[in-house]
Design a protein around this nucleic acid. Structure first.
Length: 749
DNA sequence: AGATGTACTTAGTATGTGGGAG
DNA sequence: CTCCCACATACTAAGTACATCT
């Protein structure tokens, strides 16, 4: 039990989505608690999204807080906790469940010693600008000289000049891994160009702008120049053809266009489970009424008497028809989409044409919250130009609002990265249009994130020693902080910000865990001090895990639980802001989420080392890679919807077949080549089958995209000569272009 | 010191698509 | 050549973090 965090033990997941089965009401408890709980009912009743859409109403929070102050910090567990959160709601729905157990995964972290420090800022050299797209002005350069740059591109000066050259590249590279290594010409691009002379045509793809070889801005500005065409608005509503009817209480009823539109939103979802949920229907109905004429309002008084089936059938037929369209009709549509993409899908940011992530404004519809969301079914209203804020350079060509309309505002804020924003009416939160992950602005940030995680790697043992020490603190808040941090580190829990009650599904993260989410077992089977976690996390995905902890942690937990009710906070003296403040003091830039990134990446690296066998085939290596990736996904609890075991039989059959073939192959041994080829195919099949099986519940994409330092994968691919496409698809290769370009096979996270 | 607002990352699901099996 | 399925992409909800306000 030294401070090393040797293993990630028994991570067990059951894939069930929260709102399926496990909730029970516990009225009694509810009552009991109510008595001494402050009444913090805020009247959130008023939500008029009907009134002029001009106001997106902000949430009403009039929580009255009442705090009992405790001054000191000794272990005063008798006090009522001060954090006031209303728990009425949760008292109602208790999530109880039976769990399915998965198998424990183990992995250990390795603490590599040697790590050179890398400052997060990119190297000094700028490379040549990208290809010019003809749409926008953009300086063209000849890319051959990557090194020299004209300053014209940026008015801010690169501060760092790359000085070096003499060094032995090989050695150095490692030491300066990310930052400086680009000094040496990338063989890739260089070599490539040789072929370019001919009809290679791919020129443009080959000459991608390498922003990672340029300086980063240091003044806090995100860009110097930004020009774009604005968003693509949702198309206006097209009324249904006359033959599609709506019936109320068995009788035909013609709806006004606004009421009809909202009705179609519901009709389109008729096959979805959502529409059977009381909350969904109730919210929908309430908002729908706001769109009705007064006559409609008086006629339609019960949603259960509404018959949307003709509408529903109509949409199904439409979508069927769409599928049956002829080739060129489809082509036409495709071309039109492409045209829109070309027109609206790109912007110019600092002399480079960059892809925009989401350039379409979200169309109106019914809100689909995840889990047990109190607002499911509410009308998400149509966004008009008057709701939209445009952000661009003052000296750019501003996007034009449609004829006869105007934008809410046009601003020029280069301290932010978004191009367009609007306020959404369900939660009153702001939505943005931002750049694609392949863009410089996203890529730099991503790179930086991994650099922060690597810095954590260098001091993580120190921090672990520290929080272990803090378990003994005489201040309750320090102990809580230390135990929470231990969970975050060891189990990769999310920080757990506080949420507004009643606005969202009841989910938690580490700091917001409640008493009811953990169970303590002094003894369980052959283990001691076992903590069982069972709660709904982000997206209402269930987290279920049993973990043996050290005695001291266990005792602390017992202490935290004393005199508390199930719906009380486990860590009543802690929140994410306190925790992050503390982390900040321990390491610059450190926040709770860095632990997830760090643990995910180090686990991948470590698992790859462990699982890859030098002489296995490429498909087998890929399987090893996916298994390493899977270990991370399990750690992070990334689940996929449970798709029943429909294909078990098929799988069995495949395996049987494979086995037979193996036997045959062994005996035959005819032509080496042929055998090898077949073996490879076989292997591939086998690997894929295995992979598929193992993947039923776990989604690898999320961790690959968000938590795993891509340089680890790139290094692995290069080391074992695995084709990059086997690991990263096109989109991913674009997002991780920086890593693919800069990481060599000896990269160490 | 909490509440509030903003910006940006992380997340699962719905939808589209293309390539292989039948 | 069609159909299906797996994968890719589109979409947008739901988190984290932090600045600023009160």
């Amino acid at each position: 039990m030294s401070g090393d965090h040797g293993e990630r033990d028994s991570q067990v997941n059951s894939g069930s989505r929260a709102n399926d089965t496990h909730k029970h009401k516990d009225k009694h408890k509810e009552h009991r608690r109510k008595e001494h709980k402050k009444d913090k009912e805020r009247d959130k009743a008023k939500h008029s999204n009907s009134e002029h859409r001009e106001h997106s109403e902000k949430k009403h929070r009039d929580k009255e807080k009442e705090r009992v102050k405790h001054s000191d910090g000794s272990v005063d567990r008798h006090r009522e906790k001060q954090k006031e959160k209303d728990k009425e709601k949760r008292r109602e729905e208790k999530v109880k469940s039976s769990h399915v157990e998965g198998k424990p995964k183990k992995e250990k972290e390795n603490g590599h010693a040697r790590e050179m420090w890398n400052s997060p800022s990119p190297p000094a050299i700028k490379s040549e600008p990208e290809e010019d797209n003809g749409l926008y002005p953009s300086p063209k350069h000849n890319k051959t000289l990557k090194r020299e740059r004209d300053e014209e591109e940026f008015e801010y000066k690169p501060k760092k000049i790359k000085t070096e050259n003499g060094k032995k590249a090989k050695k150095r590279k490692q030491e300066y891994e990310d930052e400086e290594e680009d000094i040496k010409p990338k063989k890739k691009t260089k070599d490539k160009k040789a072929g370019a002379d001919g009809k290679k045509a791919k020129k443009e793809t080959e000459e991608k702008w390498k922003w990672w070889e340029e300086e980063r801005s240091t003044d806090g500005s995100k860009w110097k120049f930004l020009e774009h065409k604005g968003p693509v608005l949702a198309p206006p509503y097209e009324p249904l053809p006359g033959h599609v009817r709506f019936f109320y209480d068995g009788k035909l009823l013609r709806l006004s266009a606004p009421a009809e539109e909202v009705a179609t939103f519901f009709a389109k979802m008729l096959d979805h489970e959502y529409t059977t949920k009381e909350m969904f229907r109730k919210n929908f109905y309430k908002d729908w009424r706001k769109e009705m004429t007064s006559e409609e309002k008086s006629k339609i008084t019960d949603i259960n008497k509404c018959n949307f089936t003709e509408m529903s059938e109509y949409f199904k037929a439409q979508s069927e028809a769409r599928k049956q369209m002829s080739k060129d009709e489809k082509l036409k549509i495709k071309e039109e989409n492409e045209r829109i993409l070309q027109e609206y899908g790109f912007c110019v940011m600092d002399n480079h044409k960059e892809r925009i992530g989401n350039f379409r404004i979200e169309p109106p519809g019914l809100f689909r919250g995840r889990g047990d969301h109190p607002k499911m079914g509410m009308l998400k209203r149509r966004i008009r130009p008057e709701d939209i804020i445009i952000n661009c350079s003052k000296d750019s060509k501003h996007p034009k609002p449609p004829q006869g309309t105007r934008w809410k505002e046009v601003r020029h804020d280069n301290k932010v990265t978004w191009l367009v924003s609007w306020t959404e009416n369900i939660q009153g939160s702001i939505k943005y249009i931002m750049l694609n992950p392949s863009s410089r602005i996203k890529g730099e940030k991503d790179w930086q994130k991994y650099e922060t995680a690597r810095r954590l790697k260098k001091c993580v043992e120190r921090l672990r020693a520290q929080y272990r020490e803090d378990w003994k603190s005489k201040e309750m808040r320090v102990r809580q902080r230390a135990v929470a941090l231990y969970f975050i580190d060891k189990l990769a829990l999310r920080a757990g910000n506080e949420k507004e009650e009643g606005e969202t599904a009841d989910t938690v993260g580490c700091c917001s865990l409640r008493v009811e989410h953990i169970k303590l077992y002094p003894k369980m089977d052959d283990q001691e001090y076992v903590v069982e976690f069972d709660f709904l996390g982000k997206d209402s995905i269930r987290y279920y895990n049993k973990m043996p902890v050290e005695k001291r942690v266990f005792k602390n937990l017992q202490l935290f639980l004393e005199n508390k009710q199930p719906e009380d906070d486990l860590f009543d003296r802690l929140n994410t802001s306190i925790l992050n403040k503390h982390l900040q003091e321990l390491m610059d830039g450190l926040t709770a989420k860095v632990f997830r990134t760090y643990n995910a990446s180090i686990t991948l690296q470590q698992q790859l080392k462990e699982l890859t066998s030098p002489d296995e085939s490429i498909p087998a290596k890929i399987l090893s890679y996916n298994r390493a990736n899977r270990a991370v996904a399990i750690l992070c609890n990334h689940q996929r919807a449970n798709k029943s075991l429909l294909s078990t039989c098929t799988e069995m059959y495949i395996f049987a077949l494979i086995n037979d073939l193996c036997g045959v192959l062994r005996m035959v041994e005819v032509k080496r080549k042929a055998v090898q080829r077949i073996e490879e195919q076989l292997m591939k099949l086998q690997m894929q089958a295995t992979d598929r099986e193992e993947n039923k519940q776990i989604a690898l994409g999320t961790s690959k995209l968000n938590y795993l330092d891509p340089r680890i994968s790139v290094a692995w691919v290069k080391k074992w000569d695995v084709p990059m496409e086997k690991i990263y698809n096109k989109t991913q290769r674009e997002k991780f272009a920086w890593a693919i370009d800069m990481a060599e096979e000896d990269y160490e996270f």
